[in-house]
């Protein structure tokens, strides 16, 4: 039987790792839930942002906390351009999968052309800092990530609940034609949301650069688990995405501590299936 220290530490690591799932799920959940666009290139955009963070950090010695100020707006613009394509070709949910998949593949190739297929690692002096609380260690970078993800998810949730734009977006997501007949300009809002989703990918990318391994094929490594998180968290629900991310992260981590680490990938989909069957009403 694993010790309390081990379980507690695994829980902490898992919840914090889940923050990354939640952060990646955030933009995906918004565009899927509110625009009915499944953006597979979300991961590629996050990795593009990660590589840019890496490049600015290693070549020009710009701290990620500064480069993020450039990268996130740039990602927002990329999101707008991407949405122009969706808009121009009147892309539906299914077609969006294919188009964004192609877009992701093109980005993967472009990243590989410039940065090669080799592993890239952005070494920083703070990447392995931890705070000791009692018997437990809390990694600082992951903690910051979770706080940022929390602020973004909470802020987005409030934005969708409390502002005219947010409510109009939700109304449009439910019935775009009716919303339009009440004067909601779905097109403009959709551009805004697409830009925002890509900007969130940019934020995630900055943390990916600091925490994870960069290799072009890694773009696909997060796909399965983040999709599970998006669905568990309910489409278009930012807080749901974050909590689902942490739930999956914690479940994976506990499975690794109690059973075998090889069980981790099974966990996210098992949780997904259980929740789909059980269908709890906590929205």
């Amino acid at each position: 039987m694993p010790s309390a220290t081990l379980l507690g530490q695994a829980l902490i690591s898992g919840v914090l790792a889940g923050g990354m799932y939640g952060l990646l799920a955030l933009g995906l959940s918004l565009s899927w839930g509110l625009l009915r666009l499944v953006n597979l290139s979300h991961f590629a955009l996050a990795f593009l942002a990660a590589y840019l963070t890496y490049e600015m950090g290693t070549t020009y010695h710009i701290d990620p906390w500064w480069s993020v100020l450039v990268i996130v707006p740039a990602m927002f613009v990329i999101g707008l351009l991407q949405h122009w394509v969706f808009d121009r070709f009147k892309v539906n949910e299914l077609a969006s999968l294919l188009i964004t998949f192609s877009f992701a593949v093109i980005l993967e190739v472009a990243i590989q052309l410039y940065w090669t297929a080799d592993y890239r690692r952005f070494e920083t002096h703070y990447s392995t800092l931890s705070i000791k609380v009692g018997a437990f260690y809390i990694p600082v970078l992951e903690l910051i990530l979770c706080l940022v993800a929390g602020v973004l998810a909470w802020g987005t949730w409030l934005w969708l609940r409390k502002t005219y734009v947010g409510k109009a977006l939700r109304a449009s997501a439910e019935d775009a034609e009716i919303a339009a007949a009440y004067g909601v300009d779905h097109k403009k809002l959709a551009y805004l949301l697409s830009g925002l989703g890509a900007a969130y990918a940019g934020v995630a990318g900055t943390f990916i650069a600091l925490i994870a391994t960069l290799a072009p094929a890694q773009i696909w490594a997060w796909l399965g688990v983040v999709f599970a998180v998006v669905i568990i968290g309910r489409l278009g629900n930012p807080l749901g995405a974050l909590f689902a991310g942490m739930l999956i992260g914690a479940s994976e981590s506990i499975a690794m501590a109690v059973l075998s680490p090889a069980w981790a990938p099974v966990v996210s989909f098992s949780v997904l299936i259980v929740l789909l069957l059980w269908d709890p009403d906590w929205s």
């Binding site: 939700r170 109304a171 439910e174 009716i178 919303a179 339009a180 004067g183 909601v184």
Partner: peptide, 29 residues
């Protein structure tokens, strides 16, 4: 709609996922 035509559809078509208050404020001018 923005010019001032307000519509009450035959099917009502309220936004089911929005609260009563949000239904009113989402489209308010």
């Amino acid at each position: 709609a923005q010019r001032g035509i307000g519509w009450v559809p035959q099917e009502r078509n309220v936004f089911r996922s929005l609260s009563v208050e949000e239904n009113l404020t989402a489209v308010a001018r």
